[in-house]
Design a protein around this nucleic acid. Structure first.
Lengths: 227, 227
DNA sequence: TTACCAACCTAACGACCGTTAGGTTTCACG
DNA sequence: CGTGAAACCTAACGGTCGTTAGGTTGGTAA
């Protein structure tokens, strides 16, 4: 099992497999969309995302994925080590994409309230843009533990929790927030933000639910309370 | 399929099966604990709860349950229609137990803030008393949808959401809460209350996490905000 | 004594699962 | 042209799953 490495660690079928690195296979042409015309690997990842999000990781069989992608099972195993690796690749990519952007945007903003507002609004936008991602992530994170997956998700979500905790600490330092346990505040805020997303993702994603109005209402409730 | 009925709807193996009612099998003696000495049915239910809570509904096989209970597979199918029926029986019983008590206690209390405080405190107490129950319920509710189970849980949790919504409406009527969408407030409050429970249930349930101090902090944050 | 039924059992059934051994095709490169 | 590797394929492997057909037992009622 080696170390926790940032690298993908797939491929290299017939070779030694003891090497932890193993270079990443990149598509020969830079394809944009994920239609039937795109690369096999991209199609596999996208179909996997769709079906994983719909039925959950465990209830999705690799056969369903390869059927949707129009390939056979060994093809899937050519591109990833196993089902878990497929999932991790998928989620890590999507997560880091949004997380890094969110992080850099927040650093350019002053004031706790405005930061929180931006955090919620941006998160909502990401989720509306592709509801499969939050649906898969929340379902898997809050669902029954899956060996090799649960720890991976814990690690991912910890980085976001750390970000929010930092926001809370800063808010307390600047006097915008009352003195309190920053982790309690961060957890509470994440709950207020995440569960509407979760609700949205597991319904038939009505277009007008995750609005910026709702985002602001959440921040308002968090800061000023409902009483 | 038939209608949505309150009754259990198990048993009646070789008989017609079209009858929706079917009387409930009660143990011949009233056994208290769930040791090896109690009735087979109670032992099955308790073992099912333990393993379902630990690994989730789908990842739990009936073989694991009957092994833990010390019986064979046909015995399990003698007491319930199938795996889903076993789960529903389990959850319905535990849920209604706590929900009814909670409901009646809340009706004897005046004042929104005191009611909310009691709601959270009591919920915490239930969860500390047997963490398997919230763990199983949240895991299954927030996890990937399971045919025949998801709708069942939606129905159950809707009753509690209605209760909380009523509290919010009353609070707004009495002026203790600002005018706002009562469902938004109810959802937000449930999030603030449930996720710490969820966190507690999926960790190794540290004795001193779901304290009445945390309960009060949640109500305080909900009413007065963190800003 | 006999008949019956609740309460269990042994032993399988068929379906599906993740994974892989061992090909074949295509094509860039020498 | 020949070689080799990338990108796929057919066809299975062994295992686990939920469920059940068809017993056996032991006590109770007629």
């Amino acid at each position: 099992m080696a170390q926790i490495r940032g690298a993908r660690g797939s491929r290299a079928k017939a070779s030694v497999r003891s090497a932890t690195k193993s270079k990443t296979r990149e598509p020969r042409v830079a394809t944009a969309s994920v239609e039937g015309s795109s690369s096999t690997e991209a199609r596999l990842l996208d179909c996997a995302l769709t079906i994983f999000a719909e039925k959950g990781y465990s209830a999705t069989s690799v056969r369903q994925i390869i059927d949707a992608a129009g390939v056979t099972q060994p093809t899937l195993y050519y591109y990833c080590d196993d089902k878990a690796d497929l999932f991790k690749r998928l989620v890590r990519q999507k997560y880091e994409e949004s997380h890094q952007q969110l992080d850099s945007v927040l650093q350019q903003i002053d004031g706790c309230e405005e930061r929180l507002r931006t955090l919620v609004r941006r998160s909502f936008e990401y989720c509306v843009a592709d509801p499969r991602i939050p649906r898969l992530m929340f379902q898997t994170y809050f669902g029954p533990p899956i060996e090799g997956i649960a720890e991976f998700l814990d690690e991912l979500t910890a980085t976001r929790f750390a970000l929010v905790t930092r926001l809370m600490r800063d808010g307390m330092k600047s006097g915008e927030l009352k003195r309190a346990d920053p982790e309690f505040l961060a957890l509470s805020f994440c709950n207020l933000m995440d569960q509407p997303i979760n609700l949205f993702a597991r319904m038939s994603h009505p277009k007008r639910y995750l609005t910026s109005k709702l985002a602001d209402a959440i921040v308002e409730l968090f800061l000023r309370g409902g009483g």
